[in-house]
Amino acid sequence: MSHIKVELKKEQVAKIKDICKSFNNEAGELINVLHKTQESFGYLPAEVQEVIARELNVSVAKVYGVVTFYSFFTMIPKGKHPISICTGTACYVRGAEKVLDEFKRILDVKVGETTPDGKFSLSCLRCVGACGLAPVVMVGEKVYGRVSPDGVKDIIKEYEQ
């Protein structure tokens, strides 16, 4: 798997070490440590996993195994403008998939990925409770309703500069 190389700053390493220490550096606490770390970093790049592995004295492979097993852990930072497409039943029926495909095509990323410039990330959501507006797209906190595939490029344009 390809991943974005990050250089951890001294304070960041210290922060991870503190989190590990707050769980007594216990290998059995790996999942909790990962949770806390993701809360503070937003995601879990390889370099962060390596520090955790060393601190808890487990193999890096094992840490990576846990990170990839649970879907709420992510190794990719969210984009500056996280785009979420609702794929709940109502949105799906009203063509959310075509909208999603258009986002994928224009941004050239898959679901769960971030554009190389770090601007946009793409994810799917379960029903956001705005079914009257289906299909619904969210960019950050802003909600767009009745989005058609043709409207996708206009939404992206709003955030492009």
Partner: peptide, 26 residues
């Protein structure tokens, strides 16, 4: 690799259909 040799080169990674045993970061 992990329990007997304590090398830790391998681990089960991913889930479901794409689950596999692999080194860190595949």
């Amino acid at each position: 690799c992990n329990d007997f040799q304590t090398v830790g080169a391998l681990s089960g990674v991913n889930r479901g259909f794409s689950a596999v045993v692999a080194p860190a970061f595949e």
